[in-house]
Design a protein around this nucleic acid. Structure first.
Lengths: 341, 341
DNA sequence: AACATTTGCGTAATCGTTTACTATTTGTGG
DNA sequence: CCACAAATAGTAAACGATTACGCAAATGTT
């Protein structure tokens, strides 16, 4: 394809390619006259530099890889958007992969990021890829793990204090007088799920309320209908409960509906609380008490860490191989609304 | 940075770089013995080919640019996710930019896509960049415009039939006996907004119901609260209406709340319908009647067009300069739920 | 046996930039 | 007037892959 190259510009302006390059990148002094000539040739020919080529020499692609389970998840989407915006201002672009919670796809995505020369990789993982992480780091690519934790792996992490979040909301329920608090949980494969449930358990323990595994029920899915179903199951098992905490807002909204279907009034008969701070919690009736994940803060922290690692790398390309990983824990915020009392 | 290159592999395996390249790409016969030696060197050295370099010669980056107002918008996010998945299977990656509905950012994003050598660009635009589009196409880059329309520009478009969608839902209301149907609209800068409102107007006209501009009110924002507010405003203006159609689901959900706050019962006193088919419409009480945008179909169509253009381009790199643009119109689907009768 | 063809692989040009090195001109102090 | 520095811009190597071309050995043909 006959696209315009720097050579065409150089010829048109009657200068060398070096001068054109220096004009574009302001990387050495060029006289006003030359500069003007180059710039007008660029305009005239509609020259767009090929940034991929530049990366060849400079060893810098100005690309950040984001590997994420699903961009259409509200939290992940907002996270990705925030990161993209921040880095766009810093002249970086985002190359994005959804893994659909699939371990194989995740590995494929990581490989792609490597081969496309991502300067750094931001990962919300579904697997425990300690070895892969080490390998990537040894190639000089910083990896930042978000909202996940690999115990015992030397890797930067930015994560939510899921334990504290759930602890706080359950404690809030207890302080309002609730003693029989059902908990809707999920598969406990990943650490954040376990931590969150431990928050529920610890809150009970700290207030001397016995932990009753019978009122901990598992949702069959991550959606509204799973919540509806689980609510009915829970009330059949334990009609004496006065509050339900769910691990996820959407499920909690389903729980509310399930309870209302059974004739319970919320919060008068039963209080319901969720987790995550999704937008939907503001529009239900009653609005849902939840634990808000401060996405802005997460974005900020993630970007800070990435920028820091990139700076270190630009000074010393081997820096990442002997670094002190950070572990930033972000506190979530209890949002009390009308679904609980 | 001492990263492993094809040369290292060649040296280690005792072959030429050509052979390594051919083994990796299966682009000419290499004896079993050589192949094995090369492959084990690749494993041993953990070699990852630099894909950016390949793009230099092949003029193909295997990257698709997506320029979108906001990835955390539910519809756009799902669209981006679908496109990413489809193209990942075809060995393409996505480089993504949010424009935040900002014209300047949009242009900057497009420039980046050009400079990062995107093989094609998928654009949900906020501006009317006819000239820019022409320029991009002249560079041999296919541009597909999604959910937007540039009248009179030679460009591939995949869009929703917003007119028909709104027409259908208003017609449905009329057929249920409604005569005074309020409409909540937005700024009419972009064509899809105008088309949607025209659907409302035409539906009335076709059933000989006079169009009353007094019951068309503008929401001050795209969110729940705007809906709450506009509902109250509308009912003060025209207490005789029996149904409200809103241009957007979230706003419609707000309208429901606003009406309920005023003591109306939905759908017994007033029917409410939305537009877009967002997830939230399935979890409100009552669930919202809406017009569903079939995202899967959109993704499919968009990808089909892009793939087609890429194929044409690979056969004849100048193809895009003299192509017959497609204009694919996708019909949305009326979903009747309990918020209307 | 002589020549042609096929097989298998290496050499080196190439892609479009960046940048180290070099060259030319102009300026300055002794 | 010379030696040397500063200012300005050009030449060409380098980045890491792909691929056109060429060559040697093996095989086939007459």
């Amino acid at each position: 394809m006959g696209s315009i190259t720097i050579k065409d510009v150089a010829t048109d302006a009657g200068v060398s390619t070096a001068t054109v390059s220096h004009v574009i990148n302001r990387t050495r002094y060029v006289s006003q006259e030359m500069t003007d000539r180059v710039n007008s040739s660029i305009m005239k020919l509609k020259y767009y530099p090929n940034l991929l080529v530049g990366s060849l020499r400079s060893k810098k692609s100005n690309t950040i890889g984001i590997v994420i389970p699903s961009i259409s998840n509200e939290t992940f989407g907002a996270l990705a958007e925030g990161i993209q915006k921040t880095f766009f201002n810093l002249n970086y672009n985002i190359i994005l992969c959804n893994t659909s919670y699939d371990t194989e796809l995740e590995e494929k995505a990581l490989n792609t990021m490597i081969m496309k020369q991502a300067d750094a990789i931001i990962l919300i993982s579904v697997a425990d890829y300690s070895n892969k992480m080490k390998e990537i780091q040894e190639m000089g690519i910083p990896v930042i793990l978000v909202d996940r934790m690999y115990p015992g792996v030397s890797i930067d992490m930015v994560r939510i204090n899921n334990f504290k979040g759930e602890y706080d909301v359950v404690k809030y329920l207890i302080d309002r007088g609730h003693r029989r608090i059902g908990y809707v949980d999920r598969k406990l494969e990943q650490s954040h799920s376990r931590e969150q449930r431990n928050g529920y358990i610890e809150a009970l323990k700290d207030r001397d309320i016995p932990f009753d595994p019978k009122i901990v029920v598992r949702a069959e899915g991550h959606d509204f209908n799973a919540g509806v179903e689980v609510a009915k199951r829970l009330m059949k098992l334990a009609p004496d409960i006065t509050a339900v905490a769910a691990y996820y807002d959407i499920v909690a909204v389903g729980v509310m509906r399930g309870l209302m279907d059974l004739g319970y009034s919320i919060p008068d008969d039963i209080s319901v609380v969720g987790f995550d701070g999704m937008k939907v919690t503001e529009v239900t009736y009653p609005r849902l008490t939840t634990v808000l994940t401060p996405i802005d803060t997460m974005v900020e922290k993630v970007c800070e860490v990435v920028v820091k690692r990139l700076e270190e790398k630009s000074k010393d390309s081997e820096a990442i191989k002997s670094f002190e990983p950070v572990d930033i824990v972000i506190e979530s915020e209890l949002i009390v609304r009308e679904s609980s009392k």
